[in-house]
Amino acid sequence: MPETRALRLGIAGPVGTGKSSLIALLCRELGGTIELGVVTNDIYTDEDARMLRAAGVLDPDRIRAVETGACPHTAIRDDITANAIAIEDLESDYPATELVLIESGGDNLTATFSPALVDAQIFVLDVAGGGDVVRKGGPGIARADLLVVNKTDLAPHVGVDADRMRREGEQAREGRPVIALSRNDADSIAALTSWVRHLLARHRHGEHVATDPGPMAPHFHADGTVHAH
């Protein structure tokens, strides 16, 4: 039994950037040593959950689907009830669970998880979405705990400079981590799993504090303080 409750890690990002594949990857890489659970937020029915179950990367009963009534943003941000219940059920059915991965329903660049729902979040972009997506910014890109620039192996085919995308990400994030990921690049996978393991260790030691990337850019209040809601 873990001493603290499971770490809840959100995976957000636009449709098609590879959130489900990233979760499958984490399950394959971490499943042998960490007790995992997955909650998906689907646009339709429980298709992402079914895809993950079919991938055979995790006991199908440890993959739960939340149907959001076409409100994927609401379900992870303002009314997190359905997701919170799904996570609580997973943790109650599998008390040894150490890490719950919550996949947001693919939404736009503004969707981020409430810190009441997740302890940390990864924002996923892919090179196919275009090299300028990072510069467009948004709370997830700028302030998620980790930004993943996914599918870097496709960069030459879509005319995008993956390295530049990563650098621009680092600039936009003021030093917060960025990982350029390709499933064909073992080093990038190692960097990702190492980041997750490190986060899990910090969570266990009570060193990690959930922060809200916010739905808005940081802005100045009249009293001179800077807020990132």
Binding site: V66, E67, T68, G69, C71, T74, A75, D78, D79, I80, T81, A82, I85
Partner: peptide, 12 residues
């Protein structure tokens, strides 16, 4: 409808 009880997941 803003009561946070997951009502948005339902269509009655």
């Amino acid at each position: 409808a803003r009561l946070p009880a997951g009502g948005h997941t339902q269509s009655a």
